[in-house]
Structure formats: C-alpha cells, structure tokens
Design a protein around this nucleic acid. Sequence first.
DNA 1: GCCTGACCTGTTATATCTGACAGTTACCCT
DNA 2: AGGGTAACTGTCAGATATAACAGGTCAGGC
Lengths: 247, 247
Amino acid sequence: MSIADFDYIDAVSRAESVDALHKACADLCEAYAFDRFIYGARIPTSFVKPYFIFISGYPKEWREQYTRNNYMIVDPTVEYCARSVTPLCWDGESLLKADNPEIRRFMSEAHDFGINSGVSFPLHTAQGDFAMLSFSSERVHENAGPRLQRVMPVGQLFTAYLHEAVRRVFASDVLTLSQVDLTSREKECLLWATEGKTAWETSQILSISERTVTFHLQNVQHKLGVNNRQQAVARAVALGIIEPQFA
Amino acid sequence: MSIADFDYIDAVSRAESVDALHKACADLCEAYAFDRFIYGARIPTSFVKPYFIFISGYPKEWREQYTRNNYMIVDPTVEYCARSVTPLCWDGESLLKADNPEIRRFMSEAHDFGINSGVSFPLHTAQGDFAMLSFSSERVHENAGPRLQRVMPVGQLFTAYLHEAVRRVFASDVLTLSQVDLTSREKECLLWATEGKTAWETSQILSISERTVTFHLQNVQHKLGVNNRQQAVARAVALGIIEPQFA
DNA sequence: GCCTGACCTGTTATATCTGACAGTTACCCT
DNA sequence: AGGGTAACTGTCAGATATAACAGGTCAGGC
C-alpha cells in the first residue's frame, strides 16, 4: 500500500459533513479506476423495520428503481455481504446465468445503467450495524487481476473508517440507541434472562428475592422502551448492550 | 499494497490445518517486522460462558499468566476491539500511565515479556463472532510511522480471511450452531416475538390462531435447544439466525 | 442535613407462556 | 399409494411474567 492510500482514510476520518463523506468515497473510487460507488448501512432500530442510510454515487434513476422493486432482498451482493466478512468480487456476466430468475432480471437491469462488475466490502459491528461499500465498473471482465487485488485491502479498511464517520456525521437519534445505560444489576439480571433463567432462578443465582429480579427487569424494559422481556432481550443482544462474557 | 501481500491472504485462505493458519500469521507478522502475534475469537455459544479459540505466537508463560488472571476483562486492546471496527495502534508506555491501576499492572507485566507496542485488528461477524488479531513489538515508540500505515490495510483484510479460515479448519460443533434451519413460518413467528408481540398479537398479524403461533415457537425452542422464549429470541438474534429485515 | 440513585422487598390480580393431551389438511417425493 | 414434512387447530392445568399498589436501606454529592 502506498502512503497515498492512507490519505483517503485520513480524509474520511476527518469528514464532518455528508458531502465530505461522499467526496472521500468518490475519490477512492476514481483512484482505483472504478466508475461508481455506493455505501449502505442498516441500523437495527427494529427487526421488522430497521433504519437505512445510503451515500450514493449511483444514477438516481437506478436508485429509485432499486428501491421501488425492493431489490435489496434480491441483490446477490447484499445477500453475500450480509453473511460474510470478506470482500466480494462480482461480475454481471456470470450472475446473468444465475438459477434465480429474479437475480437474472436484476442484473440485466443493472447492466442498463452501466453496472457490470465490481467489488463489495462488508462490515458488521458489535452494535448490530451492517454496512457495505461497493465500487462498480462498466467493464465486464473485471473480477480478477492486480487492480482488484490492490483495491481490496484499502477498500476493506476504508469501509470500516467510513462507517465510523457515518455514525459520527449522521448524528441521528437512531444511532444512539445502544447508548442506554443500564446499572450493573440490571445487566446482570438481563444476562441471566438471555440464558433462559426465570426470575426465580436468577434470584437464586444472585442471592436476592424473586421480586427484586422482576423489579430490575421491569426497569430495563422501561429504559429500553419495550413491551416485554422477550423484546428487551432481543434489543439488548442486537444492539450489543449485553454481550458474551469474557470471564 | 504489493502483490506479495496478497500471498499471505491466499495462504490463509487455503490453509487446511491449525499449523498452516499459525504459519500464515507468523509469516505476515515477520514481513512487517513485528515480533509476535496472537489471534483470538469469541463464539457466542452462550452469553455466560462463550467459547474461545486462540492461535498464539505469544510466550506460553504469558498466555498462562493472562488466562490465570482473567486479563481479557482488563486488556485495553480487547476492550477497544470489542466495540470498534477499526484497527488500534497501541504502545505500552502511554498505557502505563492509564488511570486504571489494573491496566497499569497488566501493561507492566506484558512489558516483562517484551510486549511494548503493537497493532490490533478487530472483527465482528453476522453470526455473532468477535475476533481480533494482534501484532506486537518489543520496541516502545512504534504507534505511528509508515510501517504501521502499511500494515493496517493488509492486516485488516487478513484478519477477515483468517477468521473465515478458522471457522473452516476448526470444524467444531460450536461453530455450526447458527446453521439451525427454521421453517419460514417459524422465523416469522420468532421475528414478531423479537418485536415484543404476544402470541395472540402475532396470530392477528399472520391471520392464524394463537395456538398455531405458540406451536411454531415451541418448535423453535426445541430446535434451538433452549428453555423458553426469551432464550430462543436471544440465541436467534445473537447467532444471526434472524436479522433486521431488508424489506 | 437533604437529596438522589442504586438496590432491595412485599402483595395482589391479570395476562401470558409452557407442556402434554390429540388431532386435520396440503404438498412433495419415491 | 404410502411416507415425510410443513402448517394448522383445539383444550386444559400449572408455571411464569406483568402491572400497579406501597414501601425500606445504603452510599455519595451538594
């Protein structure tokens, strides 16, 4: 990696506006001779209706068509990145031969907008965010060769810094959900609840009364703004408020 | 990035044994003039007692001392990596001045084993794994400069491929927990349970009887091997079996 | 000395979950 | 035609969670 690559990471780290984030992506995109970029992030505000953030260097029409047709659940690059941690090099030509007819249709429509090959970088965080950054090219046979090998390390690292910057710049309420502060006792009760313990069992473990356990868990529910214990557990796990213990 | 860097990633991707993984890490460590490496992963088999995997290039005595003293909950690099997605460059000298006396003690003991500075790469996966790879150096003033800037992109990418390789090579049962296959109806009921819906509410949403919802959720409990709905929800979320919807 | 927050406990009524009983219908595959 | 699986439904008893009532203790900060 040349020192110049680090400048892109430096730029995105210092960015204080959406425009600056957009420019940092566009610059990196151009430096590696890709045509377009798009960044998307899914924030687990809810399981049924999460919150999405996009920074798009894609044609506006294609973005609208993508949203209108719910292509997020078809897009094979999203499917891959949602489950993986390593970059994906893709080319439309081979995906046009996919078994799934919806994928073939999706790729042929992408082709109409000059999206024929590219690379996508996945990112997952402890707070439950899922993000990905894609660079695309009009050229078809592009999923190999030294140019892709060169972009992969810097792209993977850039994506991580980009997402941190997004969380900083988009100072929205939805991004502070995981900052609920529970007391140590509340976390303790919640932890045992995730392990399937009843209030009575937890009371035995912590040597307190059953009533006290339900009291703490009720406070957790209020702090998290949820309806019941299941939802409290789901939220706390999804947002990384409680995590597997180190000791 | 030189093409040579890609060889390390290629090597770890092809690795079929723990020794091969160890060697790939050691080679990259040496290539960037670090003295030692260590990789650790936490698999969310349980919240109270998760499963750990290590590939260690650290002195055996230091590893034992680290385990004995439960230093995972003290180690500031672990603390950072557990919450972040970007690499951490650390040096013992400044950490020796930390407010927390436990951290000062930890760093001074690390110093005795020649661990004075380094860089740590965090990784989080959709399946709830947390992993990190650290390279350390005996030199003290090392947390800046071109050498660190050069290792960061390749280190970040290498860590992702390393973790994928670990999941492949350590073909343990604990690594296949997230492969439980639930039927679409079971997932649907579970999804609404994570949203705090009662069985009756879910039955109204799905236009089926309340009894059927509880039936599906009971099957989920049996498949996941858990005691109650809370634990089912916690597991499913933690392992990425259910995730925030794309549409 | 007062106030706040964390932590703790109790009772009662109702809502919900859980497990075990016993089935039906529809579809796919051999 | 038979076997498997998903999806669906019912009832009942006992365990558990939830909500709303009303409190007490203790340590730390102003």
